[in-house]
Simulated assay, not measured.
Amino acid sequence: MRLAFAVSMVLILSLGTPVNAGDSGPRDVHPSLRSDLIAFYDFDHPMPDDPALERDLGRSSTEIELINGGTASRVVDPAYPGARRALQTRQVGAELSNDDWKAGIYSPTGVRTLRAFNAVGGTTVLGWFKRSMDGPALNTVTPAPDDRYNAIGLAGLLTGDSEGHAVRALLELINVEGTLRLVALGRRIDGGASQTFAASADWQTLLPKDQWVHLAATFDFNAGTMALYRNGVPVEGFYTVAGDPWGVSGPGPHVTSATDPRGIKIGGSFPQNTVERNPCDCRMDALMFLDRSLSAREIASQYRFMKSRG
């Protein structure tokens, strides 16, 4: 009886262990960061009952949809040693439609599993990106045939009141005073002003065409600061909004609005697939969303950790 009980307890403990514990995804995450990893997508883990959904290897279990592309969005193109498949996002047609390949999740009442980003003091968004476009795509929601969007969406968290576009923390390429730049864009308060930290270097130098690059953006909502990193190294840049758009000059601590994000957007806006905006003809892999602002040393450690995988 004691042996049977012991065996039963082992089975119970084994079944109770999170699926992430022995999975390939978390093994790609530096051990010091795993407890803060809320969502992680390596695009090697389709959900068994619906392969157009991607399993979250972080601790939130927030599945995302591979919108419009479905299983065809997963392509064999390793971004780093040990990687297998990546996500392909792209604009499909240059006419009014809702067929762009992108990924994400959306709920008008907030995504409960993303509650770690509710009233949070910091956030980090990072991952591998390979761009294949030469600039923003043709705008499919305006009548002018040669009009183009002013941005290329990479990956970000939506605010708690987002219509599918407004963000709490975002990595993207956007027009800054007439020049396309790699940026981190953040908003502390729902419906409030955003701040943008823009890279000084040319965006095509930071993201060479058809080459994998590791990017990270950190958001310290308490201090009111952001930072960008490329291949583990800080990127020089500047803030585009003067003053105190996040409202952090008074007594703290300062956190985001006490609302659950309405979702995640990847490769373009509106993950509920009602409108097209800022599509990215890109490939992406190992997208991570953490509930604190990582230090420069931690970003570098994560990049080196992934490069050493095999």
Rank of each mutant, 00 (worst) to 15 (best):
L182M: 09
D281Q: 14
R262Y: 05
R148I: 12
D147C: 04
V213W: 06
L13K: 00
R187A: 07
M284P: 07
D291E: 11
Y229W: 13
A286I: 01
D77E: 09
L13I: 09
F117A: 00
L182N: 02
A258L: 04
L207R: 00
S257N: 02
A169S: 14
L15R: 14
P81I: 08
T159K: 02
S60F: 13
R304S: 13
L207D: 08
G263L: 03
G252D: 07
L37K: 07
V29H: 07
P261I: 01
P81R: 10
R85K: 13
I299Q: 11
I105Y: 09
Q204R: 15
A116T: 02
G156N: 00
M9F: 11
R90Y: 04
A83T: 05
I174N: 08
L66C: 04
A258R: 00
H165W: 14
R304A: 15
T140D: 12
T225V: 07
D220R: 06
G267V: 11
T123H: 06
P143M: 03
P143K: 06
S61I: 05
G164E: 03
Y80D: 02
Q302S: 13
L57C: 07
G250S: 10
F43N: 02
A223W: 05
D44P: 04
L66S: 00
I64L: 07
V167M: 12
S32M: 06
L126T: 10
F221E: 01
C280I: 02
Y229H: 15
M133P: 00
A217D: 09
M1G: 03
S293F: 06
F43M: 12
W212R: 06
A296K: 02
D220N: 12
G153F: 02
K209L: 09
M1N: 14
G191N: 09
P51F: 07
Y229L: 00
N175A: 11
S60L: 05
V248S: 06
G22N: 11
G160P: 07
L138S: 11
V7I: 08
D50A: 15
A6H: 07
L185H: 11
S257I: 04
A144I: 00
R148D: 02
L171V: 10
F270R: 03
L158Y: 06
G160R: 11
A21Q: 11
R115S: 05
H254K: 12
G224T: 06
N68H: 13
E236T: 14
H30P: 13
G82Y: 04
G104A: 02
H254Q: 10
L33P: 00
A193R: 09
Y229Q: 09
M47R: 14
T62D: 03
K102F: 11
C282N: 04
L228Y: 01
F221A: 03
P253E: 01
D23N: 13
Q302P: 10
S200R: 14
V19Y: 08
F40E: 04
G25Q: 06
L154M: 12
